[in-house]
Amino acid sequence: CAFTHRPCSHPRLEGQEFCIKHILEDKNAPFKQCSYISTKNGKRCPNAAPKPEKKDGVSFCAEH
């Protein structure tokens, strides 16, 4: 993984420079932040999710 703030030993995603944990660092990657919002604390999930086809579409990470 090419994350520069600290060493990361996670494997890169195929065709990308970053792992799934750090892929949002790459603005050109086909990922965006997960659209899930917790009902308990109102916070948005920080994980990466595939970018949807539509610009305003929602997309969820593997956990959600």
Rank of each mutant, 00 (worst) to 15 (best):
P11A: 14
H22L: 00
L13D: 02
H64W: 00
I37T: 15
F60L: 14
E14P: 08
I20C: 08
N47A: 15
K21R: 13
E25K: 04
C61W: 01
N28K: 10
K32D: 08
N47I: 10
L24V: 06
I23P: 01
K27Q: 07
P7E: 12
H5V: 14
Y36R: 13
E14T: 09
T39M: 07
T4S: 06
A62S: 13
R44G: 14
T4K: 02
A62G: 11
P52S: 11
N28T: 14
H64R: 02
A2R: 08
G57D: 08
N47G: 11
C34W: 01
G42Q: 15
C19M: 00
N41M: 11
S35R: 10
F31M: 06
C1Y: 00
P46M: 10
G42C: 10
E63Q: 06
K27D: 06
I37W: 09
H5P: 07
C34I: 01
K32Y: 06
K51Y: 03
P52K: 08
N41P: 08
L24N: 03
E63G: 14
A48E: 04
L13H: 05
H64C: 13
L24P: 08
Q33V: 14
K43C: 08
F31H: 04
C61R: 01
T4D: 07
C61M: 01
C8W: 00
E25C: 05
A2V: 04
A29L: 05
P7W: 07
A29F: 03
A2Y: 04
K43N: 15
C8F: 00
K27E: 11
P7R: 15
L13N: 01
R44L: 13
R44S: 14
F18T: 02
P11V: 05
I23G: 04
I23L: 08
H22Y: 00
N28C: 08
I23Y: 04
D26F: 04
C1L: 00
E25Y: 13
H22M: 00
Y36P: 03
G15E: 05
E14H: 04
I37D: 03
C61L: 02
I23R: 04
H10E: 14
F3N: 03
S38Y: 12
E17W: 04
L24A: 08
E17T: 13
V58L: 13
L24S: 09
F18I: 01
A48W: 03
G57A: 01
H10Y: 14
T39E: 15
C1T: 00
S38L: 12
P11W: 01
S9Y: 12
A2G: 10
C45N: 02
K27G: 06
T39F: 10
G15Y: 01
A49W: 03
G42A: 13
F3C: 08
Q16K: 08
Y36G: 11
K27N: 13
Q16V: 02
R44N: 15
S9V: 12
K32P: 05
G15K: 07
A29S: 13
P30H: 04
A48N: 04
L13K: 04
A62E: 10
E63Y: 08
H22K: 01
G15Q: 08
H10S: 14
A29E: 03
K51I: 14
N28L: 11
D26W: 03
N28M: 10
T39Q: 10
C34N: 03
G15L: 02
F18S: 01
E25R: 10
G42D: 11
Q33W: 03
H64Q: 02
S9L: 09
E25Q: 07
D56G: 12
S35D: 13
I23F: 02
K27H: 11
P52T: 09
I23A: 11
C61H: 02
F18N: 01
S9M: 08
E63T: 13
K21I: 04
E17A: 05
C61Q: 02
S38E: 13
C34M: 01
P30K: 07
K43A: 09
A29N: 05
H64Y: 00
H10R: 12
E17C: 09
C1G: 01
K21S: 09
Y36D: 07
F3I: 15
Q33T: 15
E63I: 05
H64F: 04
R44D: 10
C45K: 01
P30S: 08
P30D: 07
Y36V: 09
K40V: 01
H10P: 00
P11S: 07
C34D: 03
E17M: 14
F18E: 01
P50T: 15
E25N: 05
A29M: 05
E17Y: 10
C45D: 02
G42Y: 11
N41A: 13
C19L: 00
E25D: 06
K43V: 12
E17L: 09
S35H: 03
E17Q: 11
P30L: 06
T4E: 03
S59E: 04
R6K: 14
T4N: 05
P11G: 08
P46Q: 10
R6T: 11
P11F: 02
I37G: 14
S35C: 15
Q16W: 05
S9P: 06
A62H: 11
P46S: 13
S38I: 03
Q33E: 13
K21L: 09
F3L: 03
C1P: 00
A2T: 10
D26E: 07
I23V: 09
P7K: 09
Q33N: 10
E25A: 08
F31P: 06
F3K: 04
C19E: 00
K51N: 06
E63L: 06
H64S: 03
P50E: 15
N28F: 11
C19I: 00
P7S: 08
R12V: 12
K21H: 15
E63S: 11
K51E: 12
C1E: 03
E63F: 10
S38N: 09
A48M: 07
F3A: 03
F18R: 03
R44C: 14
A48T: 08
Y36T: 13
R12Q: 01
A49E: 05
C34Y: 01
P50V: 05
K32N: 12
E14N: 03
K27F: 03
F31Q: 12
E63P: 06
K21E: 11
C19W: 00
E25L: 10
Q33P: 14
N41C: 07
S38K: 11
Q16C: 05
R6Q: 12
N47M: 12
L13R: 02
A49Q: 03
C8G: 01
A49Y: 04
L24C: 09
S9K: 03
T4P: 02
R6H: 12
C34K: 02
